[in-house]
Simulated assay, not measured.
Amino acid sequence: MSHSALSEYRNTSVFGAAEAASPHKLIEMLYAGLLERLATARGAIGRGDTAGKAKALSSALDIVQHLKLNLDQDKGGAIARNLGALYDYLSTRLLHANLKSDVAALDEMIDLVRRLKSAWDAMPAPH
């Protein structure tokens, strides 16, 4: 597991699970963590908590960047390219949501990540 993935989970109760997780399970956990941070940012905007919003969105951006950096372009082909483009889009929307406190952008990202996570969860883990 890379240092950035470990650092994303060091401050949560699932650190031990992430450390022992298979690559398939780690992606599942990263999607779950991304959804959690998006929801946290959404709540922070509602409360007017600028610092909380920025912290959650910064952490969300770290997760998205980690997901993109770990795409296997050689084996993944078109799927990896499409995921890379989606991760770029999410990164842009995260920056926008942070600058504009845009709840609609967060809702859009939550929907997209839920779909990704659902598809990933439905995929059988390699043995």
Rank of each mutant, 00 (worst) to 15 (best):
L94G: 07
R114E: 11
Q65M: 00
G77W: 13
M123K: 12
Y9L: 13
L94H: 03
K53I: 08
D107R: 05
L116S: 03
K117I: 08
T12M: 00
V64A: 03
V103K: 01
E8W: 05
K55A: 14
M1T: 14
I45E: 02
K53Q: 09
Y89H: 15
K117C: 02
R42M: 02
L90T: 06
H127A: 09
R114Y: 01
S118H: 03
L30F: 06
D62N: 12
V64P: 07
R47S: 12
L35P: 05
G77E: 12
K75C: 13
S22H: 09
D102L: 01
T40N: 00
D72I: 14
A39C: 01
G77M: 13
K53N: 00
A21S: 10
E36C: 04
I79P: 09
Y31S: 07
L61A: 13
A39M: 04
D74E: 15
A20P: 03
T50N: 06
A44Y: 04
D102F: 02
A18S: 12
S4E: 11
A20R: 10
A51M: 08
S2Y: 04
A32I: 10
R47W: 05
D62T: 11
A85E: 15
A5Q: 06
T92D: 10
M29Q: 03
A39E: 09
F15L: 08
D107S: 11
R93A: 13
Q73Y: 10
E19A: 13
K117N: 11
A54T: 04
G16W: 12
E28T: 09
L83I: 15
L26N: 09
H24W: 15
L61P: 01
A122D: 08
H3Y: 10
K100Q: 09
A56L: 03
